[in-house]
């Protein structure tokens, strides 16, 4: 059985060399990945959705969502930068180079934008929850109550869920289009939790940088999302079809 570190670190502890080098490596890695995911969202959707969302108010929502994600990037990037991670490459890289597959394409339709908020921002919420009470105090402070980051992510999820339900309720061809988006993003979202047998995920837990196993978080997500999909009158996609990580 693994033992889990309960010690908490501040930035000054890291600077003074009081943390295990493996811990510092993992901390730098998780901050880089989180920064990449935050800025990866706007890179996916602004090019098409900012000019092409159905209404001007929708376009303003796209702009506000982008502002919030840029701000989340800023909050994680400053922690990473203090630990020697130059996040310039994250701001400059192309979508195909992003850490997670979910951020490697482009969002070209309003259906995909809606479902991205409904399903993928919700995965993001699970990831951010991992940092609550984590062993690096400055990281925990970003997501612990009262957290603007968490409130804004909840807003993105609510907006996406409402738009997805509205589009599904129209029925006919529109419902089929939203079903196809749900099929794609649900599978992608399940993969975002990573492999159930990931050794690195266990090291994150060992060092108090994450709380749940990948599979525990994935199962909780499934239990939250599938009733919502059903309530919208949509089909629950095959959980295993096209999956890369189980």
């Amino acid at each position: 059985m693994s033992s889990f570190m309960t010690e908490k670190f501040e930035f000054k502890d890291i600077q003074a060399g009081r943390a295990d080098p493996e811990y510092v490596d993992l901390l730098r890695r998780v901050l880089a990945i989180q920064s990449d995911c935050e800025i990866g969202g706007p890179h996916l959707y602004v090019e098409k959705m900012l000019p092409e969302a159905p209404l001007k108010l929708d376009r303003l929502v796209v702009a506000r969502t982008s502002a919030e994600e840029i701000d989340h990037f800023r909050k994680f990037a400053v922690l990473a930068g203090d630990l020697g991670v130059d996040t310039t490459y994250i701001l400059q890289r192309n979508n195909p180079q992003r850490y997670l597959e979910a951020f490697r394409g482009t969002i070209n339709t309003w259906e995909d934008f809606a479902v991205f908020g409904f399903l993928i921002d919700r995965v993001g919420k699970y990831q951010l929850e991992e940092f609550m009470g984590c062993s690096y105090a400055p990281l925990a402070a970003v997501v612990e109550h009262p957290s603007r980051v968490m409130l804004e992510e909840e807003g993105h999820i609510d907006y996406g869920t409402t738009r997805t339900a509205e589009l599904a309720a129209i029925g006919g061809e529109q419902k089929e289009r939203i079903q196809r988006s749900v099929d794609y993003w649900y599978r992608t979202g399940l993969d975002m939790f990573g492999s159930s047998t990931s050794g690195r995920a266990e090291r994150y837990r060992h060092f108090g940088l994450k709380r749940r196993t990948n599979e525990e978080a994935r199962q909780q997500y499934i239990a939250e999302v599938e009733p919502l999909i059903e309530k919208m009158g949509l089909r629950i996609p095959d959980r295993m079809q096209g999956r890369k990580f189980t």
Partner: peptide
Amino acid sequence: LQPVPFTHALDEFL
């Protein structure tokens, strides 16, 4: 583990 020099300038800009 040296902080990236422009970290806080970037933070302020953003």
